[in-house]
């Protein structure tokens, strides 16, 4: 038996001799060969994992729940771990239940929600924020209309851990009269757009389309800053000022 684990560890804190324990996640062996201690690499509450083979493992874990220090009557054959009490760098934003730590990747046919970042003459740059579970049926070209009050059956939305870059090219904005599209009449920076991924695109962008009735701008703010309501397939109206602005409007359910 060695000294009990400290209740809190910070980077560099010696946790135990490496003769008794093996280092687990969040720990490392001391840099100098003279001392043989296991040191924490993260801030957190160290835990002793149950012995697996013949050694104990000390690991700082990055899990918030398993942070109770486990007293070990027999630490022959266990591991020490330091779970981080602080959000780790890669899982830092617990804002929504739907947020997933695994990176949500859009695929061809995925219905996504995206925010307009820039409107250019040849297309619209967007950041993809939410990817729905089920791809739209029949691919980007077909697909069924939403019948019930739900979301037309494309499943649960998953919030992306980081924003993915996407672009709606000018010819993908609407299905008809594709040559006459003026991007500035369909979108404004800050709009939230529902779109479908039509291709993984080039190196940096997913290509999206809004070329269906239920695709297009779902949320928009007016120049005055008020949230607008859709009044036709190509117009939103500011309920406060009464001004209308043109958008590629997504069909409301």
């Amino acid at each position: 038996m060695s000294a009990p684990l400290p209740p809190l560890a910070y980077p560099g804190l010696p946790l135990g001799p490496s003769s008794l324990y093996t280092p687990g996640p969040g720990t490392h062996l001391s840099p100098s060969p003279s001392s043989t201690h296991i040191h924490a690499s993260l801030a957190g509450r160290p835990i002793l994992l149950p012995p697996s083979n013949k050694t104990s493992t000390l690991t700082p874990s990055t899990n918030n729940k398993a942070t109770k220090p486990t007293p070990s009557p027999n630490n022959r054959g266990g591991a020490i771990s330091v779970p981080s009490i602080l959000p780790s760098a890669t899982h830092a934003r617990p804002t929504s239940k739907n947020i997933s730590n695994k990176n949500v990747l859009p695929e061809v046919g995925s219905v996504v929600l995206a925010r307009v970042l820039r409107v250019r003459g040849r297309g619209v740059d967007v950041g993809i924020l939410v990817v729905y579970d089920k791809p739209i049926e029949g691919g980007p070209g077909g697909g069924k209309e939403g019948k019930d009050g739900g979301n037309a059956g494309w499943g649960e939305g998953n919030v992306c851990g980081e924003e993915w870059q996407g672009v709606i090219r000018r010819e993908d904005v609407r299905a008809t009269e594709r040559d006459g599209v003026v991007c500035a009449e369909g979108f404004r920076v800050g709009d939230v757009v529902r779109g479908v991924v039509i291709s993984l695109g080039d190196q940096s962008n997913y290509y999206l389309t809004t070329g269906k009735n239920e695709l297009g701008v779902v949320m928009a703010k007016s120049e005055a800053g008020n949230t607008m309501v859709p009044i036709s397939w190509r117009e939103f109206r500011d309920p406060v000022t009464g001004a209308t602005e043109s958008r590629k409007v997504a069909k409301p359910f």
């Binding site: 910070y10 980077p11 560099g12 969040g26 490392h28 840099p31 040191h39 690499s41 993260l42 801030a43 990055t62 981080s84 602080l86 959000p87 780790s88 760098a89 830092a92």
Partner: peptide, 8 residues
């Protein structure tokens, strides 16, 4: 340390 970046 706050960011949880492992360090020696």
């Amino acid at each position: 340390i706050d960011a949880g970046v492992p360090m020696r």
